[in-house]
Computed example of a mutant assay.
Amino acid sequence: MAKHLYCVVSRDGGDAAVSGDCAYLVPYRDIALVVKESSPINYASLPKDILVRHLANHQSLIEGIMKECTAVPIKFGTSAMDDGELLEILESGYPCFKNAIDSMAGKVEVDLIALWNDLDSTLRELGERDEIRRFKEEIATASREELREAAIELGKMVRVALEEENGRVGNEILFALKEHHLEQRIREHFDDRMLLNVAFLVESEKKNALDEQIEGLDKRYCGRINFRVIGPLPPHSFNTLEICRIGAGEIEEAMNIIGVVPGDDKDEVRKAYRKQLRKYHPDNNSGDPDAQMIFEKFSRAYKILTGCSNLAFGKDAIMVRVVE
């Protein structure tokens, strides 16, 4: 049976959080991993609908746990082979786990999606802008062939106008909410009606104030915009933990690139990194066509060495790091 990892929690409250669920805690010092046993799953081979169901179950379990204690999500699909690997993960990742829990204590994620309620009406309004209206007048007497090309150009103009309006109104919304969150992450739009898709990191006790401010925005825009609030959620957008095993060869290569040796601690790794940063930065190697690739390799080596503990030649290691 594989051991699927869901999140890391503080042991204070963790027992109650998983009570009644087939998930269980694997404790280490003052933290614990939340784990479930099941058959190994190759998520990459699953049909999309089944994959989405697994992801929803993963998130639902974490959301239930966070009601009782601070829970920092672990990247979906992470698993361990046995209890020995779980212990290795806890020992190697403890500093990162502990820091993540402490930094997220008393905080939740709240997602906000803002959509035009009537996109057609918004597009008609944009079509009355001076530059678009003048263009319509100019092509009114165009031939059929000219009109076909003009219609394409008109569509581009309206699309640009919509993007500008989305940006203007989106910035108005963000400005109105800036006092009610700690951080924000702007996300990609996935719908033509969408003008804003953002995740907020919020102090738990201030979520109601954020909700009230969004209600005020709903009235301000007189129903033209549909505000969808999702949360409170675990801080997926701000503090999701990635756990992976790095091979001995890759560790040795990373040490050689950065210029450190086994036994050097994280401070020495950082010093070596800063010392060589100027040497590898693309801005200082503008004549080298491979400069960007070399710099990315250098950066990857640094991430490996700062994400792994107990580094040594000839041995693989567990890397734990925060991804956003």
Rank of each mutant, 00 (worst) to 15 (best):
R124N: 14
S103H: 08
V110E: 01
N117V: 06
M81D: 11
I74P: 00
E145N: 08
L147G: 13
S103T: 10
I139W: 01
L115Y: 08
L51R: 08
I74F: 03
P95R: 06
V52L: 10
K75H: 09
D82A: 05
K136A: 11
R129S: 03
A56M: 15
Q59S: 11
E125P: 04
Q59F: 07
E145P: 01
S79Y: 07
L55I: 12
F76K: 00
S143F: 07
R53V: 07
E91Q: 11
V110Y: 10
V108S: 15
I113Y: 00
L112M: 04
I139L: 14
R129N: 11
E128I: 01
S60Y: 01
E63P: 04
L86W: 11
G84K: 01
L90I: 06
L112E: 10
K107M: 09
E128H: 13
K107E: 05
L112C: 01
I62E: 11
I65T: 08
R124K: 15
E63Y: 01
E85L: 03
E125S: 03
L55D: 10
S60A: 12
R133M: 14
W116A: 13
D83W: 02
I62M: 14
R134F: 05
E128M: 09
I74Y: 00
L126M: 08
T141I: 08
N57T: 06
F76L: 00
D82K: 04
E85S: 03
I65P: 10
L86V: 14
L87A: 02
S79I: 00
E91A: 08
V110S: 03
E145H: 06
S79F: 13
I101Q: 06
L119F: 02
R53L: 13
L119N: 01
A114L: 05
V110F: 08
L87N: 05
A80I: 12
R133Y: 09
E125N: 03
A71R: 07
T70N: 14
M104L: 09
E68M: 02
A71L: 01
G64E: 01
S143I: 12
A105F: 09
L61W: 08
L123M: 14
A142C: 00
K107I: 03
D130R: 11
V108G: 02
G127I: 02
R124H: 15
L87K: 10
E88C: 00
V108I: 14
L55F: 12
E85H: 11
K98S: 11
A100Y: 02
R53N: 10
L86T: 14
E138T: 06
L112Q: 04
V52Y: 04
R129Y: 04
I139Q: 08
P73M: 04
S92I: 11
E145W: 06
S79G: 03
I101K: 04
D118R: 08
I101H: 01
E91Y: 07
